[in-house]
Amino acid sequence: MNTTTNNGAKQYFEQIYQRPVILEAKKLTQVFQHGKTQRTVLNQLDLKIHKREFICVIGPSGCGKSTFSRVVAGLDPYHSGELLVDGQPIIGPSPERGMVFQGYTLFPWKTVKENVMFGPLMKGASHASAEAHAREWINIIGLEKYENQYPHQLSGGMKQRVAIARALVNQPKILLMDEPFGALDPHTRQKMQKHLMDLWQNIDITIIFVTHDMDEAILLADRIVALKANPGEIKEIIEVDLPRPRSAELMLTPEFKRLREHVDALVHAQEEELDPALEELPKIPRMTQVSTHK
């Protein structure tokens, strides 16, 4: 990468680290109990996330990515350590931490507008106020023509946009996203990635984004938190020193490919450690007389 780009990246991260710490994990540990046995899923994680950062969390299956997002959301209590938002401990779910899952988790009996209104109504807003805020976010995500339709009438990308609007209408400090685009086709996924970057760059939000897709992590993140499994620990935190705004064309550059190779080595090395059988896959016996040779 050229010197100009390196200097720009250095200044960018200096600015990030000068911002307040919005989320801090101190020796965060999560243990699952299975009968008489225990399994440590997260092991003494120390992490500081700054206001308006875009963090991607990656790692092999079983490393605790989704577990981390659930304890930050307050959906699951953690075993030990500390987990703080603006210096205050997380003791349960809160509107200040919105959550978007891979499954769309919309209420199927409610329209788009009613789904987005749900959070404000639960917080005690009047029907008129909740409807006004819902409409504002429905317009932002570009679904104003579909506000009276039901989830089964929407495409996958539309459903996920509604889920994002339903989380953001509560004005959270942190948006947690657990594989939100994993079920989408590649073209829709790419459009949703761009839409999410546009949202993040224009609103006051910190995003923690869990993904298996290494290209997605590099395209979206300021920093990538790479976890290793058994137990889940931070293996490396990678600063993505690529200029913003980013587009899919960036994936063709040598700088992107360099980062991709580094992230790929981190994750795949762990996968082979977790499953040694991957190193010695058997030769498949011939079970057909039809040739594939030309």
Rank of each mutant, 00 (worst) to 15 (best):
M1S: 15
T3G: 01
T4D: 13
T4G: 05
N6R: 15
F13N: 08
I16S: 01
Y17V: 12
Q18L: 11
P20A: 07
V21K: 13
E24N: 11
E24C: 04
T29N: 08
V31P: 05
V31F: 05
G35P: 14
K36Y: 13
T40V: 15
V41W: 07
Q44Y: 02
L45P: 06
D46Y: 13
I49R: 08
I49P: 01
R52S: 01
R52D: 08
E53A: 11
S61G: 01
C63Q: 05
K65Q: 04
S66L: 05
R70I: 06
G74E: 02
L75H: 12
P77Q: 04
V85K: 06
D86F: 13
S94A: 14
P95I: 08
E96W: 00
G98P: 00
Y104S: 03
F107L: 11
G119F: 01
G119D: 05
P120L: 10
L121I: 14
K123Q: 14
G124S: 07
S126F: 04
A134C: 05
A134P: 01
I138H: 02
E147S: 10
N148F: 08
N148L: 09
N148Q: 13
G156Q: 08
M158Y: 00
Q160E: 03
V162H: 01
A163C: 01
V169Q: 02
L176I: 10
M177E: 05
M177S: 11
E179H: 03
G182A: 13
D185G: 01
P186M: 08
P186T: 09
T188W: 06
Q190S: 15
K194S: 13
M197D: 01
D198G: 04
W200R: 07
I207R: 12
I208Y: 11
V210D: 12
D215W: 00
A217I: 07
I218M: 09
I224L: 12
L227I: 15
A229K: 08
I234Q: 12
K235G: 07
E239C: 08
D241G: 07
P245V: 14
R246Y: 03
L250P: 00
E255R: 09
L259T: 04
L259P: 13
L259H: 11
V263F: 04
D264I: 04
D264W: 15
E271L: 13
E271R: 15
E272D: 05
D275F: 14
L281P: 10
M287V: 00
K294I: 00
